[in-house]
Write a protein that binds this DNA or RNA. Structure first.
Lengths: 112, 112
DNA sequence: TTAGATACCTTGACAGGTAAGGTATCTAGG
DNA sequence: CCTAGATACCTTACCTGTCAAGGTATCTAA
């Protein structure tokens, strides 16, 4: 089986992370758990992908980060979406809708 | 601007080419023109992508190829989809529908 | 004290896509 | 005749995002 839908979701990981951060500040592990819940365990980000994506988003000015002040448990790095990040999220959503339309035309539907 | 939807379509190029070949034998240039028509010029495969994809499909046993016998104009390499190719197309379509559902949940809709 | 969960991070490799180059044939215009 | 443009195919070197595999550290429960 290997990577269910992984190559099809590529190019949307930024958008997915931004989506959750648009709702509230969060950290990697939590977001990934939410992704797993929303997809009934069908999809989750590889940790390496998760953290490189955060890095990329931060480098692009779409998010900022700070260390949480947990007094118990493992330390957490929280992320906050910026205004540029919200704009990028909206733009990515538009692009996704467009890509979806195009793919629907191109792929047709070969399911029986 | 650069690549509109290019990274979102990655992982679907095989499926797109198979779709056209499921309808009839065809060759690279023609398929790419059909893609451009269907998308109102919004999307077309890079030539390098086009031909490496054909190679991959042939290596995987999803298509076979033969030289057309044009008596005028540039030579054309035609491709034929195999039974395995049709099965792969159907399976890819199912995966696409699934990925689309997951993405719809994950991305929500941040368009205004 | 040990196992498991939480939580983060880095490295090296890989696959698919792309830019930029190339070849060859035919047609239309000057 | 020559040139420009369309048709049609191909290769190379590079870039990017993903992933497997490793690592660190803390807390909780058995």
């Amino acid at each position: 089986m290997a990577g269910i839908a992984s190559d099809m979701i590529r190019g949307n990981t930024d958008t997915i992370l931004l989506r959750f951060l648009c709702e509230k500040d969060s950290y990697g592990y939590e977001i990934n758990k939410q992704i797993l819940e929303l997809t009934d365990g069908q999809y989750g980000l590889n940790e390496a992908t998760l953290y490189t994506t955060f890095k990329r988003l931060e480098k692009n000015g779409y998010i900022t980060s700070y260390w949480g002040d947990e007094n118990s448990g493992a330390r957490r790095r929280y992320y906050t979406v910026t205004e540029a990040g919200r704009a990028a999220y909206a733009e990515n959503c538009r692009e996704w809708l467009n890509a979806r339309t195009l793919l629907e035309r191109l792929i047709k539907d070969g399911t029986d």
